[in-house]
Nucleic acid binder design. Structure first.
Lengths: 229, 229
DNA sequence: CGCCTCATTGACTAATCTCAAATGGAGTGG
DNA sequence: CCACTCCATTTGAGATTAGTCAATGAGGCG
């Protein structure tokens, strides 16, 4: 339990005592399972619960009246969320009251949560920048690199790459592109020897090259924090 | 003081007692002034202060190595921020410790701050959706409508429109477009009789028409809250 | 006046989307 | 095992959107 993805992530950036970690593990009590494609939350739902992902991937999204979809966040194990599952997801339900209770006794834990929230916002901002000002190829590459870094932090993936359950359609709706164009860009990256996205597996063939190509700066993923904002 | 834009905004969504409002006004003590174009914060700066805007406009932005800029947020009076000023800005500096002190005695105030933070995130998400899935014209119109709603909440603007100090370049960097294209889109909106953006003034000639055209749903600006996330 | 910045417009280019079709694997029922 | 369907991927061709480059005005300001 002390080695859950969530605890792993917090430990990487906020010094937590064994007592703090024990409190974290008590939050992990109420386990729930979600089938692939199932909605964990609905828009506007004011629920007194949230979830910490243990296994699986999930995304948050908005549907527009013309039928298009924009994915607003991709969540992996260790992330805090209220979203929709992509793959089969195991998550711990956390009641708001439990959370406040946990904070009362362990202030460092509150700081860790604030740090995590601040990081989530930084990720959101980085996606905004990508949608606004990066080319399709840079956007795709940047996203693949971000996922690699986030997964590594919770102990997933390896030197060569990582497993990624997203279809090219999901990638398209995440990056504001058409699925057709995502496919073409992936081919470009593959032919340039930078990265491969195939059969549920992302392989980073030329990490330094890809980082240079996308102007990827991981600072936003391991920032100092938490900032107040 | 009880009628500052910030208090006004909070009051609109969270029931605050006179005591709560008095605590709010104590936060407004440390007034500061920022000249147009001046940076109030620098990237990555881990400062123990934040600001509440009283007058003026500000924006947050990221500069990319190729010289382009993406504006990540536009802030108006009543907003909470750490950013850059567009016009001359008056703001109250708030120390983190003061904030925690204020929360300790007035829990409803903490809820109000959480609500405001949650609303800021909803605005960010809506911009993300716009960049990813809306046409240039819808994006521009949607943004003009959002500003109208946000300004109205803090008592700025009127039935016909509002004053807006943004240049078309700033609008372009906010919406992920080129300044030239922003100009063209504004002309379209003008010729369609929907809205005018000229001489620092936004005039909404056909509000229902513009709302329909942009699929503007203000729900994200006055959501129930605060949600946990 | 001379020098800015911002707004405006035209002509052309480039990026991305849409439509359409072909491919290929995974499951399903016979 | 085979035929069939479903879904994701792949590719091509042409249309559309938005960007780039370039030039001209219009207004503010020393």
């Amino acid at each position: 339990l002390l080695d859950s993805p969530f605890a792993r992530k917090l430990k990487a950036f906020v010094a937590l005592s064994d007592d703090d970690l024990n409190v974290v593990s008590t939050l992990d009590k109420r386990k729930r399972h979600f089938a692939p494609g199932r909605d964990m939350f609905h828009a506007g739902q004011t629920d007194a619960s949230a979830y910490i992902m243990a296994t699986g991937w999930a995304c948050g999204y908005i549907l527009l009246p013309d039928g298009t979809r924009q994915i607003t966040a991709i969540k992996i194990p260790g992330d805090f969320l209220g979203l929709r599952s992509i793959t089969s997801v195991d998550a711990s339900e956390v009641r708001v009251n439990d959370l406040f209770g946990a904070f009362a006794g362990t202030p460092r834990l509150a700081i860790a949560f604030l740090w995590a929230a601040s990081r989530d916002e930084a990720i959101l901002v980085e996606h905004l920048v990508g949608l606004g000002r990066r080319s399709a190829a840079q956007r795709v590459g940047h996203f693949l690199l971000e996922l690699a870094a986030r997964l590594k932090l919770v102990g997933l993936g390896d030197k060569t790459g990582y497993d990624c359950p997203m279809s090219q359609y999901l990638l398209a709706d995440t990056l504001g592109l058409s699925a057709v164009h995502v496919n073409r860009v992936l081919r470009e990256l593959r032919e340039a020897g930078l990265a491969t996205f195939q059969q549920g597996r992302v392989t980073l063939h030329d990490l330094p090259g890809l980082i240079a190509f996308c102007d990827f700066n991981p600072g936003y993923l391991d920032h100092d924090g938490p900032l107040l904002k």
